[in-house]
Amino acid sequence: MGEQQRHSGAEVASFLLEREAEIIDSWRRLPFFDSGDGDQAQVERDCGAVVRALAEAVRTGDEDDPAAAPFNSLRGLFMELAGRRTRFGDSASEVAVEAGRLKGPVVRLWKSAGGHRGVEQTALLVDALGTLRVAVMEIAVSTSAELIQQQQEQLLELSTPVISLWRGILAVPLIGTLDSARSQIAMESLLQAIVDQRAEVAILDITGVSMVDTMVAQHLLKTVMAARMMGAECIISGIRPQIAQTMVQLGIDLEEVTTRAGLADALAFALTKIGYQVTAPTGAIGR
């Protein structure tokens, strides 16, 4: 860093520190600093921290490195602010646009302050504010990536419960869209449960499956075949009329697979299969 540049840096830093109160005042209403709890004192503390970090960055010549110590010290604050916005559904670029709004007031203040304002100093200040925005954007992107990953894991956990309906009868209620990964997990956990619980009948219930294409059907058929090879009967239930039509149109052959309209029918079939007889006590009302 040259002597001249160091001098400019010091000049911009002292401007920022001297005018801290005014900058805070111009920032405090910006949605970027809104932490959601309406705590004005906290907002002012946050603004102050950002101003001081900016001053530090221009002073040490780190104004264009978003990973440098001054910007790094703001990570916690940005994680909180940007993370909160991301969780509420704002995209990373929306957050970055809001962070960009910090620039205007400071530059205006810089120009109106009079005195000798060189091009170099102005560039330094704008650079630092731009880097601030990059740092915010980085954090917003990583938070949303984390969020997506987290949700995917939660979804996988949610997606494949194996329920024991009766001694020797298992059911897997499949819900949502089935992709390869989910079908694979469902298949593996069902087959493992068949071994563990010595189940003779397994029911794949697809009531909650929104769409069945050839790939999904292929997975279902594979599961049925694998269960059969292990010595268990596998029933597919909950095929909605619409899906039945689609499957027929797609030419999916379910000839060898036992299918039932609803889970109740499948359970009744399974019970009969393992030797139970389902009857209502005499006098009971019902079908």
Binding site: L191, I194, R228, M229, M230, A232
Partner: peptide, 25 residues
């Protein structure tokens, strides 16, 4: 007593072993 992993492999290989009787144990 066919293991799950074996069953999956055979299905992936396209061998459904038609007509073969199977049981859990």
């Amino acid at each position: 007593g066919m293991r799950p992993a074996v069953a999956i492999t055979l299905v992936e290989l396209g061998l459904s072993l038609h007509g073969l009787r199977t049981a859990l144990n």
